[in-house]
Design a protein around this nucleic acid. Sequence first.
DNA 1: CTTGATTAGTGTAGGGCTTGCACAGTTTAC
DNA 2: GTAAACTGTGCAAGCCCTACACTAATCAAG
Lengths: 248, 248
Amino acid sequence: MTIEHDPADLRELPPGLAPAWVTAPRPRRGPKPSHTVAQIVAAAVELADADGLAGASLPNIAASLGLTTNALYRYLGSKDELLVLLADAGFGPPPESPADPGWRATARAWTHAALDRYRARPWLLDVPARGDAVTPHLLRWTETLLAALSAAGLSDADALGCARLVADFVRGTAERLRARAEPDSASFPAHADGVRAFLQPLLADRGYPRLAALATRQEYPAGADVDFGLDRVLDGIAALVEKSQAGH
Amino acid sequence: MTIEHDPADLRELPPGLAPAWVTAPRPRRGPKPSHTVAQIVAAAVELADADGLAGASLPNIAASLGLTTNALYRYLGSKDELLVLLADAGFGPPPESPADPGWRATARAWTHAALDRYRARPWLLDVPARGDAVTPHLLRWTETLLAALSAAGLSDADALGCARLVADFVRGTAERLRARAEPDSASFPAHADGVRAFLQPLLADRGYPRLAALATRQEYPAGADVDFGLDRVLDGIAALVEKSQAGH
DNA sequence: CTTGATTAGTGTAGGGCTTGCACAGTTTAC
DNA sequence: GTAAACTGTGCAAGCCCTACACTAATCAAG
């Protein structure tokens, strides 16, 4: 059942991919490693939780484990590799979804669960996102959403396209929510009043009538109203679902 | 017509906001500055174009202008401030949209124009995005899209919600397109064949049936098929447009 | 059981980055 | 003409990631 991997091939893969999926076999000779990659990643998560992504530096991680910075390079190929593993560990597996109440409710629950993760660990937004996921937990999230969309009647390819849509929306929304939660955020119009007071006259003066209007009526609803955007996304997917059902 | 600003208040604003909109008045005494913020930002753009965002370091910028690194701090408050200005300058103003062929075509053109900018300057994706835009060019992009959506009958607030949706989709898609264009990208399933060969059996083995199927049928259409996702987003917005028209 | 190969972790070092502060030189206001 | 104010330089501190030589620990083979 175990799949054989040529170490030479693994070296060619993008950073972090191989260690995220397979654990290299213990070599036959030499002293036993005192730690594991999982321990290192766990320490990094803890530090990031405390001090943000910058807190998860190699020196800090090493110190928190009683190691030298360079000793980490016996476990990790590079900092990039750690970041890949860190994002996967920080996000963790998706929650269990019990009974299936329809694809729409499932997608909604998925979205809110993902936003909760981002809220719990804002530093996840600082980990550079390079296209689609490749690590176990993150792909589990994707698989979960794909299952719901497939059950609605979409082809796998269409389901993936729609899942990406939802994921993009989640990330953008998470970024807006964080910007709003942080004190000195430079986000408009979901920003501190000082920013609004600064921008409003400028926008009115320099030909941004719509934005100026939004800045004026500051009763603007929650800058990052999750459900508004989500409804639009799901409506768009629903149109595709109906079309594919009509085709049958 | 000029708006007065209390320097003390400007100091309180998020980094980059004030210099993006107003140029501080030349002080009364002392030597004339040999450069301008605009020149510094232009040099940074040039370096980023050549070597990516890492190339736009303060030492590099200073050297390219014949300055010391620290001299830049006479013009900029911090590196963060530069990044805000850099993103605005790198993106530039939106293209002129001539006759109005309806909101849907306008939004489509907007999306492709934005994706073109990301393609021309991939490093824009590396500039940390903190919620909604606040700088002149970027807000001009937003205003353009808002105008099209408002013309379709949406309220300003709804239009903003929809514009965010499109912007999120654009950024996510741009990231996928870049991942696919780069040689050593860790993106799935829009990835190099080596990654696919590595992941496919693992996915099949460990309970990712949908993703395994996608990895198997490698005739999967362009991993980042722009128009597929865009059609879904626009359909979702269209549903809102129709609803708001029916309400009248 | 001894010996040699192999590996884990340390020490040292280099080159990069952002940022702070004291200082010299230049320009303007009084 | 003098004093204030400002620009740019030099020097330095404190981070960061990474490379390489080296010691110490462990195991396989003879």
